[in-house]
Design a protein around this nucleic acid. Structure first.
Length: 480
RNA sequence: GGCGCCGUACCCAAGUGGUAAGGGAGAGGCCUGCAAAGCCUUCAUGCAUCAGUUCGAAUCUGAUCGGCGCCUCCA
């Protein structure tokens, strides 16, 4: 299976070939755990999951490393910059460590519900301070740093390639266009590797270092940890597009300066933003939607995953409630249809697939290989589902196979059982009793009473479904 | 001020030279006591606008209008 990926470095579509034959080393920038992840953040993690699943599907072994930023991420580089963790902790009356744990747990609860696979390695910044210090020491020995006003800075003038990936021309950048210039910097693009407590009086998370007690700058963690778990050079590094100009640009500079090896990363992949009608979702702006929020609105986590599948990862996706409702309806219809297909027998394999079935899979794989064109790949799933020439068992096998990439949990669906029943046994018993009464009424042609009961339940968000084999019900309507 | 991206039906969205994928919504029909679900059919002579290149353009070029992102922390 051929895979081509769009490399942000060079802005071109390139055939994918890992450094090591069948193993892919991948680093993905993880969350800064000072608040809940919002839907926009989650879109990027869904993209990364689809990437990992596609590579796995293609036969590669993927070593997926993701960091957790639990220290050092300031709201700005200057003296007015606040530590995001500390700020959040003070607002909630918790310690930064508690805040980090709380939001990291929330993050993984979200990704689990979205069927996002857990990375091979999850590494916390606070547990790798020494690795960062070691890296900064190398940079210092090689002459890439300077100290000013209590901080250790990376000197971008010593690294001529600075900004190459981002297509940044340093002379064209308008420093201070939107923010005060840090006067301690020699160049506006210089960035902090290590802060000392000379800048902050009360800092909860600090460590000893050769430059004094303090804490690391944000960018250095990804360089130090990726190096520790993936080596000096590896295959893929991904994140959101917003990381191109600053975070990833700085990572490249400090890593290649330290190791002297280039390119540090073979392929840079960046996911585009999720937008609302008038603004992008932004964690620091405070106005954003979380997964839990839309679940309260009556959606399921997988509705959002399905929604994201409908757009290519490199285009801005417009989020509206109407669009999510469309995704929900589509996802439910898909589940219903797949449910009615028999699970293939254990002996069923690729050899049992017909030429027509193979065509669907071939196109599916072709689209995956075209820079993860999920909308097209998904269209092949619908095509398979609707093809009348395919047998049900074969159809189900192909769909299950495709879902190894989509990750919607289709394989587990069965025609048996009540779909998504309530967790409340008392409510369940009450509903069952009403359904029994209604079915008796129907048998006696008392349709007025039957409809009355159905409408009553409908008003409580419970939908009744009559089938030839009996009546089932779902409790998934909007909870207000 | 600089850099980059985008504008496709009611909604989301694919498609980067060969005559508009897919999903949702809507409409008609079958089925049903009625619904729901399911199934069948239908749904852009046109891809912001105007010029141009070409045998041929949503796809290339230019201009115009509109929207977005980045150059601050940000997925």
């Amino acid at each position: 299976m051929k895979i081509a990926l769009y490399n942000s470095h060079g802005r071109v579509l390139e055939p994918f070939k890992p450094l090591t034959d069948k193993e892919v080393k991948l680093y993905a920038c993880g969350p800064t755990v000072y608040n809940y992840a919002h839907l926009g953040n989650l879109r990027t993690y869904i993209f990364e999951d689809l990437l990992v699943r596609t590579l796995t599907y293609a036969g590669y072994k993927v070593r997926h490393v993701m960091n957790i930023t639990d220290v050092g991420h300031l709201t700005g580089d200057g003296d007015e910059g606040e530590d995001k963790m500390l700020k959040s902790a003070q607002e909630k009356g918790m310690t930064p460590w508690d805040i980090a744990k709380f939001y990291a747990d929330a993050f993984f609860a979200d990704t689990a519900r979205l069927n996002i696979q857990t990375p091979t390695v999850i590494c916390k910044a606070t547990e790798h301070i020494q690795d960062m210090i070691d890296l900064i020491k190398i940079l210092e020995e090689k002459g890439f740093t300077y100290q000013a006003e209590g901080n250790v800075y990376f000197d971008v003038s010593k690294f001529p390639k600075y900004g190459e990936m981002a297509l940044l021309d340093r002379t064209e950048l308008k420093a201070g266009a939107r923010i005060e210039v840090d006067t301690a910097k020699r160049n506006p693009q210089d960035f902090v590797l290590w802060f000392t407590n000379s800048k902050f009086g009360r800092q909860a998370m600090v460590w000893e270092s050769p430059w004094g007690v303090g804490y690391p700058g944000w960018h250095v963690e990804c360089s130090a940890m990726s190096r520790k778990y993936l080596g000096d050079q590896f295959d893929i590094h991904c994140g959101g597009v917003d990381h191109i100009p600053v975070h990833h640009t700085n990572e490249i500079a400090q890593t290649e300066a330290a190791t002297g090896k280039e390119p540090w990363v073979q392929y840079w992949l960046h996911a585009e933003f999720l937008l609302t009608k008038t603004f992008k979702m932004s964690k620091s702006e405070g106005n954003f939607l979380t997964l839990s929020k839309i679940e309260e609105m009556g959606f399921e986590a997988l509705d959002y995953r399905f929604f994201c599948l409908g757009a290519h990862y490199r285009t801005q996706l417009t989020f509206t409630e109407q669009a999510l409702e469309g995704a929900r309806a589509g996802r439910r219809a898909l589940f219903e249809k797949v449910k009615s297909l028999p699970s293939p027998s254990p002996g069923f394999g690729p050899n049992q697939v017909s030429a027509t079935g193979r065509d669907y899979l071939d196109r599916f794989e072709q689209y995956l290989g075209e820079d993860l064109n999920m909308p097209r790949a998904l269209a092949e799933l619908w095509g398979t589902l609707k093809d009348v020439t395919l047998g049900p068992e074969e159809k189900r096998w192909i769909i299950n196979t495709m879902d190894r990439v989509f990750g919607l949990g289709l394989e587990a669906l069965t025609p048996d059982g009540v779909p998504v029943p309530t967790q409340d046994p008392a409510l369940a018993a009450e509903v069952e009793a009403l359904i029994d009464e209604r079915n008796t009424a129907r048998k006696n042609k008392n349709f007025a009473r039957a409809d009355e009961i159905r409408n009553q339940l409908k008003g409580r968000g419970i939908t009744i479904i009559d089938t030839p084999t009996g009546t089932s019900w779902e409790n998934h309507e909007r909870k207000m």
